[in-house]
C-alpha cells in the first residue's frame, strides 16, 4: 500500500516537473533596455566574487579584479550606479536568461552553445584551456589518464563542456565552486585540474608542487561580456564602448592594474584583446 502510494507520488512529481519544462522554453525573456537601465540609475552586473584576479572581494568588502575594473568603467560611462551580483560559473547563463542581471562580466568564455542562449559583446581577453597536475605525476597528455584517474572541473565551465565533447573517456569530477575545486586538487581527490589556461598558469605559479603539463588544450577562445538574448540596445552600447576604449588602450591598463601581479607582463599582449579585435596569432 505504502509503496503504491510512494510510486504514485513520484510519478505525479515527475509529471509536474516535466510539465514545467515546456513552459520555461516558451516564456519570453525579461531584460531591461539601455534606456530602462539609465532611467533606473542602477545596473546589475554579475561578476565572480571568489575568482582572484578576475572578480573577487577584497578585505574591505569591495569588488576588485580585471572584470570589475571594466565594470566600474561601464558604470561610469553609463552614468549609473553598479549593483554587483555574486555569480557562480554554473548559474551565469541562468542569470541572463531570467534578466536578473543586465550584464555578465564573469570571465565568460564565448562558446557556440552559450551564444544560443545569451548575446556576447566584443571580446576583451583571450583564453585557451590548460591542465595542471601535481609534480609527483605531471599529466602532459590526456591519454596518460586511466579510467580511475578523475580530472577536476568546475561545473558550467568551458573545460567541462570541452572534455565531455572531445574526450568522453576522461572521468570528470565536478565541483560547483572554484574554491571547492581548488581544495579537491590540493587534497588529491583528482589527478589533475582542467580549467582556463590563465587559471592553471597562475595556480602553478603560486602553488609550489604543481605543473601545467598541458598549457594549451583545444581552440583559442575569447572572453566577452554577455547580455540577455535580444537585448540589442545594451549590446550595441557595450560594443561601441569596447571599440572606443581601444584609443586609450584601456584593457592594457586594466591588465597592468589587476592581472600583471598574477601572470607577469610576459602574457600581457597574448591575453589582452583591445577594441574587440582578436589578433590572428
Amino acid at each position: 500500500m505504502l509503496n503504491t502510494k510512494k510510486l504514485l507520488a513520484l510519478t505525479l512529481t515527475l509529471l509536474f516537473v516535466f510539465a514545467l519544462i515546456p513552459a520555461a522554453a516558451q516564456a519570453a525573456p525579461v531584460y531591461r533596455t539601455l534606456d530602462e537601465i539609465k532611467a533606473d540609475g542602477t545596473i546589475n552586473i554579475g561578476v565572480f566574487s571568489d575568482k582572484n584576479p578576475f572578480g573577487y572581494v577584497d578585505e574591505n568588502g569591495e569588488y576588485q579584479g580585471y572584470d570589475v575594473y571594466f565594470a566600474e568603467r561601464i558604470g561610469k560611462d553609463l552614468g549609473v550606479k553598479i549593483n554587483y551580483v555574486s555569480t557562480e560559473a554554473a548559474n551565469r547563463v541562468e542569470y541572463l536568461e531570467t534578466g536578473k542581471v543586465d550584464i555578465i562580466l564573469a570571465n565568460f568564455t564565448v562558446t557556440p552553445e552559450r551564444a544560443e542562449k545569451v548575446d556576447f559583446a566584443l571580446p576583451y581577453m583571450n583564453v585557451a584551456l590548460g591542465v595542471v597536475s601535481p609534480d609527483s605525476r605531471v599529466i602532459t597528455d590526456l591519454s596518460e589518464l586511466s579510467a580511475d584517474d578523475p580530472v577536476i572541473v568546475i561545473s558550467g565551465t568551458t573545460a567541462e563542456t570541452y572534455l565531455i565533447a572531445n574526450n568522453p573517456e576522461v572521468k570528470l569530477q565536478k565541483y560547483d565552486t572554484y574554491a571547492n575545486a581548488k581544495n579537491a586538487l590540493e587534497n588529491g581527490n583528482g589527478v589533475a585540474w582542467a580549467n582556463d589556461n590563465t587559471e592553471v598558469i597562475a595556480f602553478a605559479l603560486q602553488n609550489a608542487g604543481y605543473t601545467v603539463g598541458i598549457p594549451s588544450l583545444g581552440s583559442q577562445d575569447t572572453i566577452a561580456p554577455a547580455v540577455s538574448k535580444g537585448n540589442d540596445t545594451l549590446l550595441q552600447w557595450l560594443n561601441d564602448e569596447i571599440v572606443s576604449l581601444a584609443d586609450e588602450q584601456f584593457f592594457h591598463k586594466d591588465y597592468e592594474a589587476t592581472l600583471a601581479e598574477t601572470y607577469g607582463l610576459d602574457y600581457e599582449d597574448s591575453l589582452v584583446v583591445e577594441g574587440g579585435a582578436v589578433n590572428a596569432k
Binding site: 566574487s49 571568489d50 575568482k51 582572484n52 573577487y56 572581494v57 577584497d58 578585505e59 576588485q64 551580483v85 555574486s86 555569480t87 557562480e88 554554473a90 548559474n91 542569470y95 536578473k100 560547483d176 565552486t177 572554484y178 574554491a179 581548488k182 603560486q206 601581479e261 598574477t262
Partner: peptide, 21 residues
C-alpha cells in the same frame, strides 16, 4: 550561495580567494 546570496560560506570562500597568493 548558488542563487547569489552571500552568506557565511560564500564570505569564507571570498576571503580565501582574495588571499590565495
Amino acid at each position: 550561495l548558488m542563487i547569489g546570496v552571500v552568506e557565511m560560506l560564500k564570505v569564507a570562500q571570498q576571503i580565501i580567494e582574495a588571499n590565495r597568493m
